[in-house]
C-alpha cells in the first residue's frame, strides 16, 4: 500500500470497491493491541512447531534451523503459544510503556 490507510479518500478507491493489491493488510500493525508480550526461551524449545500452527495471527516464524521467532509487528498477545507450548518455552510478560 503506497499511502497510509487514513490518507486514502473515496476518490482513490476502485469502482465497485475492488481491491487490486492482494494481501495488503500485511502493512497494518496489529502489534499495538498487545498488553502482554511473549518471551521465547530458545534453550527449552524442542522445535515442534506447535506454536506456529496454533498462532491465529501468523506472528510466529519458523527459522531455517527450526527454532521460532515472534513477529511483534503482528502479535496481539493472546497467549495461545504460551498455553500450547509443551515445554513452557514461551512466557508472557507485561508490555511496558
Amino acid at each position: 500500500m503506497a499511502k497510509p490507510e487514513h490518507e486514502i479518500t473515496w476518490k482513490e478507491l476502485n469502482v465497485g470497491c475492488v481491491i487490486d493489491e492482494p494481501g495488503n493488510a500485511a502493512a497494518y500493525r496489529t502489534g499495538d493491541w498487545r498488553s502482554q508480550r511473549p518471551v521465547y526461551n530458545k534453550d527449552r524449545c524442542i522445535r515442534c512447531g506447535t506454536c506456529y500452527i496454533f498462532c491465529p495471527d501468523m506472528a510466529i516464524k519458523i527459522l531455517a534451523d527450526g527454532y521460532i521467532e515472534h513477529d511483534l509487528y503482528y502479535c496481539k498477545g493472546c497467549g495461545i503459544c504460551v498455553e500450547e507450548c509443551p515445554t513452557d518455552a514461551i512466557t508472557m510478560v507485561d508490555e511496558e510503556e
Binding site: 493488510a25 496481539k76 497467549g79
Partner: peptide
Amino acid sequence: FVPGHRACQGCAEAL
C-alpha cells in the same frame, strides 16, 4: 490469509 487481519485476540475462527 495474511496477518494484519483485525480479529480479536486469540480468535480460533481466524486460525
